[in-house]
Design a protein around this nucleic acid. Structure first.
Lengths: 355, 355
DNA sequence: TTTAGCACTCATTACCTTTGAGTGCTAAGC
DNA sequence: GCTTAGCACTCAAAGGTAATGAGTGCTAAA
């Protein structure tokens, strides 16, 4: 359809989007004409805007109102027109120091990241972490803990360590445990989840001797853990920030969007994870989702070590400050990747420091 | 001031509150007169209501409007007038089955409970868990995990088990670890957090031999863990549900309340924890908090085993269905207490079940 | 090709009127 | 002496109309 926009048209379009992002009000020709670096009169702007309207880049809420960017307009804006937003030193600093505070476990981390991103962008944020490879157990340990309690420690291929306290009616000796641990290590390490079946259970139990009654419990826990590992972990934070946006003064609208977030986001994101890995922007109706029409999503991937990848994103009105949001999100992703790249520096002896 | 209310006045007051809770609209004399078990005419009701107004139990938004309960009116209502709400079988079932799904760790649990409570009451909910006694380490274990990695396993006095993967540049033998573990168990168990000081560190390091470089790392982790154990854990969920309430159609109001929740709740709750341990209801201006005027809080304690106590509560408009909310909350608290009372039933061998 | 000018459109706002729910008071009834 | 019917009065909410003004489209001149 349209071959190419003239430079002037682009300039006008950019101005419209910029202004609309700032004010959330339809922008008129006069306003643009008064912009410092705009050398044409409002009449000229008017005719340019009429063209842009015809081309589908702008929309008109009603006859005598200013113009508003259409979805296509936003698309063009984010793809070509948008000025790079340069993060100020303050901004990078506050993001970095926020991330600095060590994140403990992965599931906790996901929540914290969501919260931080939401804070940094003043929009609702989503954070997802998921493993691509299935983890396996790389090592079993059994520790006797007194009064018939046993601690089961699993070390996973992902270098994570999980444990479970098992209270057994049976009395077991230190030696029984050693034997059982050896057996488990011999038969159950490096196995993907799928292979933990009834057959394996029976085979192992037969050789287990005194500790046989422990085996099913161990297996259940292993399967549980590996499944949990494989699953996706996601968190939403700062939903309330939507209310700060003028387009969601309508409570019903805000509510509808927010309730759809939990389920909706989930179904959308896998698709994105497989695609490009820069920052991705979904504008309005491009969504698969049903009623997120005047809503946009900006998201970025980041690397976590150990076979995991993460994604952070924000949700907001189509009229959001894409430049700023993108910049902050990217910086966030970068910082996170960096942080995970040097995990748990071989720590130098230094005690008593607290978060 | 007022000595006692006549039965009839009480009946009228109860009707006003009941109706207002249902409709969120000022209630007029005619409406009450038409109530099935009300044997007086609207004129009589009117004069009774005038009295109640004078006594401060009712308020009048404007001259020609119906009446609305005042804070004092709500207070009287929840203290004396409120009819017990009987949970239906359906309700108890859905609450129970929601809780049934095992909650893993305490911090995860807090969030889950908040979510469940919010769901059950359709209001924003808070959930807090905190330990009263300081935990101690009751057992140390060190496990060699290949490539210079060591797994440190702590068993706490609360029966929780935590671990940490330590990557050390130094190479340590199985035997070194055994010795170190024995040393740690001899010197660092049963100690409250406060005693982990520089002196202890130095003393232990002196006797540690080959594993000396590990000691500071272990200690840092221990201190960290014990502090975390002592700290309060709290979660807020379902903030968005506020928007469903007509009094918070005003977005600004909802937003103000919600932002104040995070900090405010924190400062309020300790006070309550120490007080009564039934269900407690804070009505409107009784709050310590600043701008929670037409907001009430209903909360209940519940027992977690192992030196912990929990609290669940909801936040909502003063006009909330106290009876229903209280009933559900109490049932929740009971179920939770019960669940924690029989933790981790000595499990019978049974494998392959998943959540 | 650009711009000034002007008639026109239409959402928003302000202002006024109407409506009706609900009250307070008084006088009659039980 | 309670209770209740009746009635004038109040006032928020709803509806309807007019004024306002931002912004447009078009035309004619520069």
């Amino acid at each position: 359809m349209n071959v190419e926009l003239t430079e002037r048209k682009k300039k006008v379009l950019r101005s419209v989007v910029d202004l609309y992002i700032r004010t959330a009000e339809p922008v008129g020709s006069k306003l643009i004409a008064e912009l410092p670096d705009m050398q044409y009169s409002s009449a000229t702007i008017r005719s340019e805007m009429a063209d842009l309207l015809a081309m589908g880049y702008l929309e008109q809420p009603h006859t005598s109102a200013g113009r508003v960017p259409s979805a296509a307009g936003y698309r063009l804006y984010v793809d070509e027109l948008m000025a790079e937003y340069r993060l100020s030193l303050d901004e990078t600093k506050s993001i970095s120091s926020a991330i600095e505070e060590k994140m403990q476990k992965v599931d906790k981390m996901v929540e914290k990241v969501a919260k931080l991103v939401s804070q940094a962008t003043d929009l609702p944020a989503i954070s997802v972490a998921s493993r691509y490879g299935g983890a396996t157990v790389s090592r079993f340990d059994l520790i006797l803990a007194g009064q018939g309690s046993i601690i089961l420690v699993l070390m996973l291929s992902s270098d994570e360590v999980v444990n479970k306290l098992i209270k057994l009616p049976v009395q077991l000796e230190e030696n029984d445990l050693k034997l059982l641990a050896a057996l488990l290590n011999a038969t159950m390490t490096e196995l993907p989840v799928e292979e933990f079946n009834q057959a394996l259970l029976e085979r192992v139990m037969r050789s287990a001797g005194a500790g046989a009654s422990l085996v099913p419990i161990v297996m259940e826990f292993v399967v549980d853990t590996l499944n949990r590992q494989g699953s996706t972990n996601m968190a939403v934070a700062g939903q309330m920030r939507l209310l700060g946006q003028p387009e969601y003064r309508d409570v019903d609208k805000a509510q509808r969007l927010m309730t759809s977030l939990d389920e909706e986001a989930l179904s959308n994101l896998p698709a994105v994870m497989q695609n490009t890995n820069g920052t991705q922007i979904l504008v309005g109706p491009e969504h698969v989702a049903r009623e997120l029409k005047d809503t946009s999503v900006v998201m970025t991937r980041f690397d976590i070590g150990d076979g995991m990848q993460g994604m952070i994103g924000v949700v907001g009105p189509t009229r959001m400050d894409y430049a700023k949001v993108t910049a902050r999100l990217s910086y966030f992703a970068e910082s996170l990747s960096k942080m995970f790249a040097k995990p748990e520096q071989p720590q130098l002896p230094e005690a008593g420091k607290e978060e």
